[in-house]
Design a protein around this nucleic acid. Structure first.
Length: 818
RNA sequence: GCGGGAGUGCCGGAGCGGUCAAACGGGCAGGACUUAAGAUCCUGUGGCUUAGUGCCUGCGAAGGUUCGAAUCCUUCCUCCCGCACCA
């Protein structure tokens, strides 16, 4: 018998696909479908199992849609700028570009081996000047609109990365890349993008997205809308706005706390208290205290005036107040806020209760009472319920011009400056006379210089040729910005460039983008919820406001694949030694086997563990399919099989559509079991191949060809089912036979236990079922290892010594064993 | 603390109001083939009981809704993930 030569088969079809360019697509050819996976960072170690899984999910969907008559755009690219490449290059003493290019080459080779149906003509990578030129262009547009701005502020800085980080890149007070490195505070001038301008829209439109609920919730929380009030407190004769959601507790204010990072902190620190405050400031570490540490503070020596009572309220500086949320200063109401309570206890500040529960009194507050209730100790507002009190107090203050309603968001402007080399240069020039001057569009791209010296600090700033330039305005001496852009900028619009990746004159052809976009199906890991996925939405909305696109959201449907863990259940890692390299599996079993197995393990959105026996089983199945088709006997399909085929088409179609690939595979296995060992028509054999094709493209192309077809199965039409051919009768009959089998087993067991011998089984059926049981008697007999003789219960000539025939009922024949 | 998800057999995992001792896969046990091994195929895989029956146990735990629950509700426990002092 001929062996399942998966290697030869896979290479053959990969070459054919590439040569024939069948996956390259052109615009305006019918209904479009845009399928995309998050483009990967090309690491030097090549594809890992997560990549293989990610792309397999996308490829199956792309192939499925293609067969369903869609004009499918399915491109691939590389997120090739970034710190890891720079660091690795320094380590191995190569240039990041060389390093990255070879990593990309490796990725391409490996991806081709997995048989993904990408349109390779649309390839792009972000370190291509033809690509990052448009990063700079977008930046200039934002600058023009006032959405890109420079600001000195306290920022997060990672000493290992030697650069500042965006808020989104700080996890638990540590750098997202260096879990062991505390983020430090630095006060630097940095470039920001005003994502907050879009906060409300970003929040509102989450609702409309066909995304996993989890990601949507994460984005909602990240944007963090909060409706409240701004109340003016007078400090040293100046007006200071303070944000609160609880104006009803204003009579309970016993202190104020200003953020340790507040830019105007020292305006209110008195001479006398300066030393204390400075001592305190030295102790604090990161900008946004992401770990819950003990609250600490120091008295500033200043007082605020209470807007109602005109009492003097002491102002403290504290480590738990954020500088960049609200106005960076809060009113302390220890009786009704847990944090304020903790702080008051620590520094012995007075606690004044102003809200009580509706049904009882609280004598001594042991903890903050944060629920709503009835106001007490609040002058004319006493007796009001919390909600009405908010309104009344607001109105009273508002009349004096001391309060207004205000909505805040947790979302902060996106800090994009990076003091590193391997990224897009920010297209800005600093002139001594003219100040900040944008690079004129005609001078784009600002090329990243190739010859730089790596060492301490940013290699761009030590490159005189790069830094020294002329002012575009006055032609005088000037210097270039040496910061590069966060690589998340690159990835926030790459999906648009795929629509027109070679355009040299403009960012993209609006018409092409209008045809292809938005991305209909986007596959990637959940870890991008608050970074890439929010930045992309922001940039897209900006481009829309520039008039470049007409839609509001980039990704209509998002799918997060689960994590594939090692066989031991832990995350695959070199240190654990549980890494399974997808390319090793391809070598051993073929890429069809890998693809098939990856999606049969579990629902694709769930985490699972690798299983080396499972891949064997998948491979075995594909071998069986291969052999079956080699020796296939074409003929007429039985009615029963036809029913099953039609049902399977229906189910598999739905399963793929809903990403229940694992279930689709079960149905396919079941169908295969049905069609083996019998004749089927050529058409039905082809249907099976088509259904299997998205999962195992190479094998199905090969078998398709062997059936005598000249075209590609990849371009074939997806089978349609005929509801009329799905006959429940067959399933019911199967059930009847199964029940009979159970009964027979029961009886035989009893015979065995009592050591009774038997050689024959007699069945007495109702007349209409005689044929059904006769047809199945041979197979059943084989199973129980005995001859089965079938009689109609009404047959006068039947052999029936114990009159079992009277037990015959529909679906349940009488049984006699002897 | 808040938010999201999950807890089913020896294991991976289906099922998400009735036909479920539980799809499909793996493991294990028994059998067939074979000189033997491998491969392949078949059968079994909660317990008791029974000429084809019936009962019990069972889907993290305890309650509840319902004629009926793994599936809905409540509380609790465990695990995973995300956010985390946002005033």
């Amino acid at each position: 018998m001929k062996k399942y030569q998966f290697k030869a088969i896979e290479e053959k079809w990969q070459k054919k696909w590439e040569k024939s360019k069948i996956f390259e697509v052109k615009e305006y050819k019918g209904k479009k479908f845009y399928c995309l996976e998050m483009y990967p960072y090309p690491s030097s170690s090549g594809l890992h199992m997560g990549h293989a899984f990610n792309y397999t999910i996308g490829d199956i969907y792309a192939r499925f849609k293609r067969m369903n008559g869609f004009n499918v755009l399915y491109p691939v690219g590389y997120d090739s700028f970034g710190l890891p490449a720079e660091n690795a290059a320094i380590k191995t003493k190569t240039h990041p570009e060389k390093f990255t290019n070879s990593a990309i080459k490796n990725f391409i080779t490996q991806q081709k081996k997995l048989g993904f149906s990408y349109d390779w003509s649309r390839l792009l990578w972000s370190h291509d000047p033809n690509y990052y030129k448009w990063n700079q262009w977008i930046f200039l547009k934002m600058f023009e609109k006032g959405l890109a701005y420079r600001k000195k502020s306290a920022v997060n800085f990672c000493s290992k990365c030697e650069t500042v980080l965006a808020n989104e890149q700080v996890h638990n007070g540590k750098c997202w890349r260096h879990q062991d490195t505390d983020v430090e505070i630095k006060y630097l001038e940095q470039w920001f993008l005003k994502i907050t301008e879009y906060a409300e829209e970003l929040l509102k439109e989450i609702e409309k997205l066909n995304w996993p609920e989890k990601i949507k919730t994460m984005q909602r929380n990240w944007i963090g809308k909060s409706d409240g009030y701004e109340i003016i407190f007078e400090i040293n004769g100046e007006k200071w706005p303070v944000f609160t959601t609880r104006p009803d507790t204003i009579f309970g204010v016993t202190f104020m706390v200003i953020s340790a990072q507040h830019p105007k902190l020292f305006d209110i620190v008195s001479e006398k208290n300066k030393k204390d405050v400075e001592k305190f400031l030295k102790k604090i570490k990161s900008v946004s205290q992401k770990t819950q540490i003990e609250k600490e503070g120091a008295f500033t020596g200043s007082y605020a005036l209470h807007p109602f009572t005109k009492e003097k309220i002491p102002i403290w500086v504290g480590n738990f107040v954020l500088a960049d949320y609200g106005s960076g200063i809060v009113m302390g109401v220890p009786a009704h806020d847990e944090r304020d309570f903790e702080f008051a206890k620590k520094y012995n500040l007075p606690i004044k209760q102003v809200v009580k529960p509706i049904d009882k009194e609280i004598k001594n507050l042991n903890e903050a009472y944060t629920s709503s209730g009835i106001l007490i100790n609040s002058k004319e507002f006493s007796g009001l319920y919390t909600e009405e009190a908010k309104e009344h107090i607001f109105i009273a203050l508002n009349e004096k011009g001391l309060a207004r309603k205000k909505t805040l968001y947790k979302l902060k402007d996106w800090l994009i400056s990076r003091q590193r080399y391997w990224g897009t240069p920010i297209p800005i020039i600093y002139c001594n006379k003219c100040g900040i001057v944008p690079v004129p569009e005609k001078d784009l791209p600002v090329l990243l210089p190739k010859k730089v010296i790596f060492g301490k600090g940013n290699p761009l700033s030590t490159n005189k040729k790069f830094v020294n330039t002329k002012c575009p305005k006055c032609n005088g001496k000037a210097r270039r910005e040496t910061d590069t852009m966060d690589t998340f900028f690159d990835s926030s619009w790459y999906y648009l460039r795929f629509c027109d990746n070679k355009n040299k004159n403009e960012i993209f052809d609006k018409k092409k983008v209008e045809y292809w976009m938005p991305v209909d199906f986007y596959v990637g890991g959940a870890e991008h919820a608050t970074m890439h996925l929010i930045y992309s939405r922001f940039i897209l909305k900006f481009l829309r406001d520039l008039g470049l696109v007409k839609f509001n959201e980039p990704f209509t449907r998002l799918f997060n694949q689960g994590m594939i863990h090692g066989e031991d259940g832990y995350v695959m890692s070199k240190s654990r030694g549980n890494v399974v390299d997808p390319l090793d599996i391809v070598k051993k079993y073929g890429s069809d086997s890998l693809r098939f197995f990856l999606v049969s393990m579990a629902s694709p959105d769930k985490d699972t563990s690798w299983n080396s026996l499972g891949i064997e089983s998948s491979h075995k199945f594909l071998s069986n399919v291969f052999y079956f088709f080699l020796n296939i006997k074409l003929g007429k399909t039985k009615e029963k099989t036809e029913s099953k085929i039609n049902k399977t088409i229906k189910e598999v179609t739905e399963n793929i559509e809903n990403l229940n690939y694992n279930i689709a595979i079960i149905k396919l296995r079941s169908l295969f079991e049905e069609i083996t060992n019998q004749e089927i028509s050529k058409e039905d054999a082809e249907t099976f191949l088509k259904l299997l094709h998205p999962f195992c493209p190479h094998l199905t192309e090969e078998l398709w060809e062997r059936l005598g077809n000249k075209n590609f199965i990849s371009l074939e039409k997806w089978p349609k089912y005929d509801e009329n051919k799905i006959n429940k009768k067959f399933e019911e009959e199967d059930k009847i036979i199964e029940n009979l089998y159970e009964d027979l087993k029961n009886i035989i067991n009893i015979f065995k236990k009592t050591n009774k011998k038997f050689s024959k089984v007699y069945l007495y059926t109702i007349p209409s079922e005689l044929n059904l049981f006769k047809e199945n008697s041979k197979l059943l007999g084989k199973k129980i290892n005995s001859e089965i003789i079938v009689f109609s219960a009404s047959d006068p000539k039947k052999y029936d010594p114990e009159n079992k025939s009277k037990k015959a009922r529909p679906g349940k024949p009488g049984i006699y064993v002897e």
